[in-house]
Design a protein around this nucleic acid. Sequence first.
RNA 1: GCCUGAGUAGCUCAGUUGGUAGAGCAUGCGACUGAAAAUCGUAGUGUCGGUGGUUCAAUUCCGCCCUCAGGCA
Length: 312
Amino acid sequence: MTAETVERRAVLIAGPTASGKSALALAIAERCDGVVINADSMQVYRELRILTARPSPEDEARAPHRLYGHVDGSDGYTVARYIQDLERTLDETAGRPAVIVGGTGLYFNAMTQGLSDVPPIDEKVRAFWRERARSISPAALHRELAVVDPTLHGRLHPNDTQRVLRALEVADSTGRPLSEWQEKRSRPAIPGAGLARVVMAPARDWLHARIDERFRAMVASGGLDEAAAFAALGLDPVLPVMKAIGLPEMMAAARGDVPITEAVEAAITATRQYAKRQETWFRNQMPEWPRLDPEASRHFLAVVDDIAQRMK
RNA sequence: GCCUGAGUAGCUCAGUUGGUAGAGCAUGCGACUGAAAAUCGUAGUGUCGGUGGUUCAAUUCCGCCCUCAGGCA
């Protein structure tokens, strides 16, 4: 067995937004001298601390935190970059337990099961297909996929333009269909066996109440100003950051386009819908991960102690 | 008190020349390999305000009642 295959001590904590996973991560990290590492696609952006519910400076003082707010909003972040960042961070923090926490199911899949080694897409090719997607119908775009990647043509819905576009880009840029690339995955950053893993699994009603409460607290603590300051940057509306839940709603309210109460309701609804999508992912993509109901506080503490012990 | 309008899905509303109804949003369920807080698919739901009448049949027509909005007093 080479040094490469020796498993890193790590806890993986997934869960829907507002389910209390950051608190669990921090409690565990404090007890085992661990490093909290982000696994959330939006908390990486520097400009949005409040609206993405990033850990506060006080929280960050209690244990080292990594991969939070380390990306500029003008950058387009991707799973591939995340995996690179994660691998580098794991190297840099070797020797201490890693407490990886977040809500992005795709990132957990990529870190435990690997990602296909698709080469970077030629920018000209990418621009060509994005333009083409604007000029022809989704059905027509999907038809073009039939020629270069029949497998994905059959698997993707014609309206799923984002995936159809990716498949077309890859085939065009690499000369091989994406479905072929996807048959092989790279070695995972965190091989799954032997890790401590947990999925936060709160009751739906409890989560909804928390989401409601938390979003109102965000607004009360400056969420609107954060959105206004962000809008002042004048960034390209197609950037991934722009899709942060609550950001478009709060920018509209800051502009005076919609009443604040309406914007808050819209943001809360969007957050609930997101939580539902996350739960679907966790339920079906990671069915074997142990569940933890944050309401069962005695159990919660026992889990913290148990995991912290195993990490030492 | 009178006149007019409205009462249909959780919400906003459409509709039925009389044969028990439908969109959008919300909600549930699902898919997911470099935008994933993204992108996409799919499925419910109804005493058609109440009550009497006409009719083979009333959410639809008629009477009365209730509620809401506007106008007149």
